[in-house]
Design a protein around this nucleic acid. Sequence first.
DNA 1: TTGTAAGCGTTATCAC
DNA 2: GTGATAACGCTTACAA
Lengths: 357, 357
Amino acid sequence: MKRKVTLKQIARELDVSISTVSKALSNSKEISEDTTQKIQAFAKLYNYRPNNIALSLKNRKTKTIGILIPEIVHHFFSTVIRGIELVANQRGYNVIVGLSNESFTKEIINMEMLANGSIDGFILSISKETLLKQDYHHFNATISQGMPIVMFDRVVSEVDCDKVIVDDFSGSIKAVKKLISTGCKHIALITTMDYVSVGKLRTQGYLEALQDSKITPDANLILKVEDALNVEGHLDILENEIEQFFKSNAKIDGVFAVNELYAVTAMKVARKLGLSIPEHIQVIGFTDGVLSKHATPSLTTVSQHGQKMGEQAAHLLIDRLELQDDKNDDFMLDEEPNEQFKTIVIETDLIERDSTR
Amino acid sequence: MKRKVTLKQIARELDVSISTVSKALSNSKEISEDTTQKIQAFAKLYNYRPNNIALSLKNRKTKTIGILIPEIVHHFFSTVIRGIELVANQRGYNVIVGLSNESFTKEIINMEMLANGSIDGFILSISKETLLKQDYHHFNATISQGMPIVMFDRVVSEVDCDKVIVDDFSGSIKAVKKLISTGCKHIALITTMDYVSVGKLRTQGYLEALQDSKITPDANLILKVEDALNVEGHLDILENEIEQFFKSNAKIDGVFAVNELYAVTAMKVARKLGLSIPEHIQVIGFTDGVLSKHATPSLTTVSQHGQKMGEQAAHLLIDRLELQDDKNDDFMLDEEPNEQFKTIVIETDLIERDSTR
DNA sequence: TTGTAAGCGTTATCAC
DNA sequence: GTGATAACGCTTACAA
């Protein structure tokens, strides 16, 4: 087992100074052709690679991005990570992942763990508990320490930073209008509680689309599901809730669900009740994941383009990081005049499959 | 924007030496009650946190684990990550993620990027291309540099390290025996090409189960799919292949597929051909993911317990890392006598749902 | 009880 | 051309 070789060792071995080695390896023209050759050969032979940690300490930057998401076993989030990782690597960055598991406390712990030098900036999506508490001090604290944050999907206006969001509002409008145009008269909405920002926006889109088409929204046609994904048997609960909902609203002929799972479950329940899709009921979901593609019938969905969101978020963050560098090279005003934070909106697409006509 | 405060700054501010501050903060009894109080109060006020990078450099360990997987948008792998992250955090470690995207080159690049000081050890699953090339020098090189590796799921005997695998062989036996016991006479196998180790093992399990029950395997009943997941339209190709397969083997009354996707697709094709499940054909898949749970009918599967695999892998790696520490404290033999590498086998469970009788 | 100094692996500045 | 030195932030013998 040969330990990693360092400049020091090379220097000792070749009987030159550490700085000579360092310079030779970076092809400095200060060093003679001869020694450079010798040193580079030796370094290659022993497979020398500069130690990242030492570089990070020296440069006060780690070239790594911290990702903090509520959950990883989730098609959308893993898609976003893929996007982030892709451009991060392209631009010479690594990616370190923390999971909040939808918990406020774990979110804070994770942020503190990473903010102490391990990373240069965050890309994150807020946990549900945090959204519910509406306590965002940890984000603002991190930012005011000079660590940039880019938020995606679950964002919040109380924090001033770059953001990447999906156009939930108009995505929902597209979906509902599709249902209307194919003849649905009584369109139900299956959504989450309001504190999840995206749920709220998708609900608003639903309402807007109805009103646009002169259809009066009916509160009975809206089912707000209290999601408790971690609870054992939540699936059965969801199924029962939707079944009751369908039974007490026999006229429903279209369903717009704010996520895949709700949509697929709605189809399952409908089938159980002897209603066929798309003949009796048409269904559209939000989020284009594995379920949508492979459900029976395959599900028409609003695609969120998670990978693209991740890519954009990574570019946003890295751009800001490298911009910071430039500023430090020049003179550094203590008062930042007016920081311009961007919000990128990713357009959604309606992917038509077999659950609609 | 207040920059992160360092020991140096505290020292200057309080007019003591850096080491006094360091000791006071670690509650060393060398320092007087008084100064300790003063320093701790100040540190708290300015929210001092030691810089991870500096610590890493000093301790020559980063307390972070590198995960290297072929793909993240994949239920099984994200489940494993969740397990790793869980115990890593419990034991004070962070997790950095690299994606090989099933590519040999990206696997190597990623390993080199991380092995230069950024992490203390790897947990990884081998990319398909690497498996195909059978070139494992990068793993062995990393290990011989003193960086431990734990492999999971896609492992290989050519590399000497800790491993966590699923009992593919007996999992498959369970599945096929279930089919036999519920009356299937002509059980088909849908599998991958042999170079993917798990595909091979699952195939062997299938054969074993048949022979155990005195059924002569029929080569015509085995479909080896060349997976090209990245190719546009691979789904249609898969569907066609399976359709042809079914058409030319009309007597098939049971299907064992080595993954979810193949199983679900088989069900889809069967339905298309007017065969009902489980009446005409029973289906069992491997890997218990989202698809299995929500398919119609819901799919009977062999559960891989990805999260558990992740947890075990993390324990294995961290145990070894901390064991290394102890050895360094004592005297250090250059010749490790006979390193004992463990292979943990995770048992599978057959989860019975509606695609079998 | 407190401070000095070395060291972790690098790079950059400045002398020689 | 080459080398000594300081610095990044921290811990820890060892002095004082």
